[in-house]
Design a protein around this nucleic acid. Structure first.
Length: 549
DNA sequence: AACCACCGCAACCGCACCAAT
DNA sequence: CATTGGTGCGGTTGCGGTGGT
C-alpha cells in the first residue's frame, strides 16, 4: 500500500519534473511564490538530494532548493538526509545490545536523543526517540518496568557499559558546545560553594531538574503536569524575571521586597494565570529568600517564579483529568494545589501521566513503577516504629550520595539528568523496588545527620494561618524557598533543627512530594515542619524525614 | 470481507543557539 | 548591538500497516 502510493507520487513528481526544470531555467535565486512540498519524500526527490550532497557535501541545506529546484525546504532536506539518505545508516529493528544501550543512555541522559544517537553508530536520534516512545507504550501496556533490572543496577551503582563511561565515550568536543556552557558554569559555581553551602555535592543536577520538569510538560500528548523545557525556562526568564532586579539580592540571598515593584505579585499571578487569593502581606514583603543559585549570581539556575509559572498553567491543562475537581466547584487555587496533591484521585491520574516519554531517565521509571500493579501495594510506614533507628545497612545506603557525586565527575556531562536519577541513589525505595522499600527505608546523610525518609499516612496540617503562609510561599517560590529561614522566621524554631535549604530544594524538586522534617528526638507534631506542597508534587506518597542522627 | 482500534514510523513544527553581517 | 540565516534538537502529528472482531 505504502509502496503503491510512493510509486504514484513518483509518477506525479516526474510529471512535474519538466515544471521543475522550467523553473530552474528561470530561477533567480529567490523562492518568491514557490510553495515548497511537504509530506513523504519520493525516490526522485531522494535522488536529487543525494546527488546534491555528493556534489556539494552536507550543510547549507537551504541551497538545495536553490540549486536543484527541489521543492523542499532546507530543514526537510537536512532531516531526510540525516534520517534516511546518508550512508552507513543502520536500518531495521534495534538489536538487543542496542536496546540495552539505549536503556542505559536514557537512564543517564533522559530524552537527549541526538546525544544518545552519538553512541549508536548508524542510528538516528529520530529512530531512538521513536523506539523509546514505543517502548514506553509497550512496557506500560505489559505492566513491565521501563528499565530492565540490569540497567537499574548499572545506573544506580554507576556501572554503565564501557560504551558510555569507558573509552568509547563520546568526547565532549564531539558534542555540541551548547550542551556544556551554561551547565558548566552552574556546576562550577556549585562546586565553588562546596563547604559554604550545605549539601552542595548532593544537590541534584540543576539542569537535570530542568530535564525533570521536562517530564511533566503539559504540552505533552501524554498529558502531564509541569510544562517545562529548556526553551520554556528561557521564555519565562525573558517574560517574567524582569519583574525582579536581582542586583538587590543581598549576601544572604534574600530579595528585599522593598525592591519588588508594586505590581510584581500581580504580574506574577497573571503570569501564572491565576489570582492569588491571599494578599502577600507585609511580613512576606519583608524579605524573600532565594536559593544559592541566585546567591551565586546565577540566574539560570534560579527558577522560583519560573517553576511557579510552569506549574500553574499546567493545572489548567485540559488534558488532565482532574477527577473530583470537576465534579465540585474548584477550590481556591493555592489550596487546590495542596488538595490536589494530597487527594488520592488526582494523584492516581497524575501517576498515570508519569509514564510520559518526556520524563527524564529513571525518574520516569520511578513514577512509572509506582503505578504498576506490582508497586501498588502502598504500605506506609508506621511513624513510630521506624523513625528513630537506622541499621548499619541503611547507613551504608547513604553512601550512594557520594556515588552520585562521583558520577558527575565521571560522566563529563553536566546536563545529564542522571542528576534526576540521583534521587534514586538517594532514595532507592522509591525507585526500583518497592519491596526493598518495605524492607529498607531510604536513609540520607544530611549535614552529617542520618535522615530517613518514611511514608506517613497523614501530613501534619498547620493551622489556618500557617496554611495560608505555606500556600503563599509555595505559590510564590516553590523551588527555592529557604526552608530553614522560613521555618525560623515563622515558627521561631532554630533553623539548625531544620532541613537545609539545599536539601529542601532537593527534595521538593526531585522527590516532588510533601515532606516533613522531624527534629531529632521528638515526635511532637508542632516541631514537625512540613515544606511545600507543590503543584508538581504529584508523588502519591508522603514522606516523613526523621532525623536519626 | 469489512470495519475498527491501535501501533509505529516518517516527517513536520517550534524553538533555541550560533555565526555572519 | 540588532538582525538574519543556518542548523540542530526535542516534541508532536499524521498516515499507513496490522491485528482483532
Amino acid at each position: 500500500m505504502r509502496r503503491m502510493k510512493k510509486e504514484i507520487e513518483d509518477e506525479m513528481f516526474h510529471d512535474g519534473e519538466t515544471e521543475l526544470q522550467l523553473y530552474d531555467e528561470g530561477y533567480d535565486g529567490s523562492a518568491c511564490g514557490v510553495v515548497l512540498k511537504k509530506g513523504p519524500w519520493t525516490s526522485a526527490e531522494d535522488d536529487i538530494l543525494v546527488n546534491y550532497v555528493k556534489k556539494n557535501g552536507e550543510g547549507n541545506w537551504n541551497a538545495v532548493h536553490k540549486h536543484t529546484g527541489l521543492l523542499r525546504c532546507g530543514k526537510s532536506c537536512r532531516l531526510r538526509w540525516a534520517n534516511h539518505l546518508r550512508p552507513n545508516l543502520k536500518k531495521g529493528t534495534f538489536t538487543a545490545a542496542e536496546e540495552q544501550l539505549i536503556c542505559e543512555l536514557h537512564a543517564k541522559m533522559g530524552n537527549k536523543w541526538a546525544r544518545m544517537a552519538s553512541f549508536l553508530p548508524g542510528r538516528t536520534d529520530n529512530e531512538i526517540k521513536n523506539y523509546w516512545n514505543t517502548r514506553i507504550k509497550r512496557r506500560h501496556r505489559a505492566g513491565l518496568p521501563l528499565y530492565p533490572p540490569e540497567v537499574w543496577q548499572q545506573v544506580l551503582h554507576g556501572q554503565s557499559t564501557d560504551r558510555i563511561n569507558g573509552r568509547n565515550k563520546v568526547h565532549p568536543d564531539f558534542l555540541p558546545k551548547k550542551y556544556f556552557d551554561k551547565h558548566d558554569a552552574i556546576f562550577d559555581s556549585l562546586k565553588d560553594n562546596h563547604g559554604i553551602l550545605p549539601y552542595v555535592p548532593e544537590l541534584p543536577d540543576i539542569s537535570a531538574y530542568g530535564n525533570m520538569l521536562n517530564g511533566f510538560d503539559s504540552s505533552s500528548q501524554y498529558c502531564s503536569f509541569v510544562p517545562s523545557t529548556s526553551s520554556n525556562h528561557k521564555r519565562f526568564q525573558e517574560s517574567t524575571m524582569p519583574f525582579l532586579d536581582f542586583s538587590y539580592i543581598d549576601r544572604n540571598g534574600f530579595y528585599p521586597f522593598d525592591h519588588v515593584q508594586d505590581d510584581t505579585f500581580d504580574k506574577l499571578t497573571q503570569s501564572f494565570g491565576v489570582q492569588s487569593p491571599l494578599d502577600p502581606g507585609p511580613s512576606l514583603h519583608s524579605s524573600m529568600c532565594y536559593s544559592h543559585s541566585i546567591m551565586n549570581d546565577n540566574s539560570s539556575t534560579s527558577k522560583p517564579f519560573e517553576a511557579a509559572k510552569l506549574e500553574l498553567p499546567s493545572l489548567q491543562n485540559s488534558e488532565i483529568d482532574l477527577g473530583s475537581w470537576v465534579t465540585s466547584p474548584p477550590p481556591p487555587l493555592l489550596e487546590s494545589i495542596d488538595d490536589f496533591i494530597q487527594s488520592p484521585a488526582p494523584i492516581s491520574t497524575l501517576e498515570s501521566d508519569c509514564s510520559s516519554p518526556q520524563n527524564s531517565g529513571l525518574l520516569q521509571s520511578v513514577l512509572y513503577q509506582r503505578k504498576t500493579p506490582s508497586s501498588s501495594k502502598h504500605q506506609y510506614y508506621d511513624n513510630s516504629s521506624n523513625s528513630s533507628t537506622a541499621t548499619p545497612g541503611e547507613r551504608e545506603d547513604s553512601s550512594a550520595l557520594n556515588m552520585y557525586e562521583t558520577e558527575w565527575e565521571d560522566y563529563a556531562d553536566p546536563v545529564s539528568p542522571f542528576g534526576a536519577s540521583s534521587i534514586l541513589n538517594e532514595c532507592p525505595a522509591v525507585s526500583a523496588n518497592r519491596d526493598s522499600l518495605d524492607e529498607q527505608p531510604p536513609v540520607h546523610n544530611i549535614n552529617g545527620n542520618i535522615v530517613k525518609l518514611e511514608y506517613v499516612d497523614q501530613v501534619w496540617t498547620p493551622d489556618d494561618s500557617e496554611n495560608q503562609i505555606t500556600s503563599l510561599l509555595n505559590f510564590s517560590r516553590p523551588d527555592f524557598l529557604l526552608a530553614s529561614d522560613w521555618y525560623e522566621h515563622y515558627s521561631g524554631h532554630d533553623k539548625n533543627q531544620t532541613i537545609t535549604d539545599a536539601t529542601s530544594m532537593f527534595f521538593e524538586d526531585q522527590l516532588a512530594t510533601n515532606y516533613k522534617h522531624t527534629p531529632a528526638g521528638t515526635s511532637n507534631p508542632s516541631q514537625v515542619w512540613e515544606f511545600g506542597s507543590l503543584a508538581w508534587n504529584n508523588m502519591p506518597a508522603v514522606y516523613q524525614i526523621s532525623d536519626l542522627g
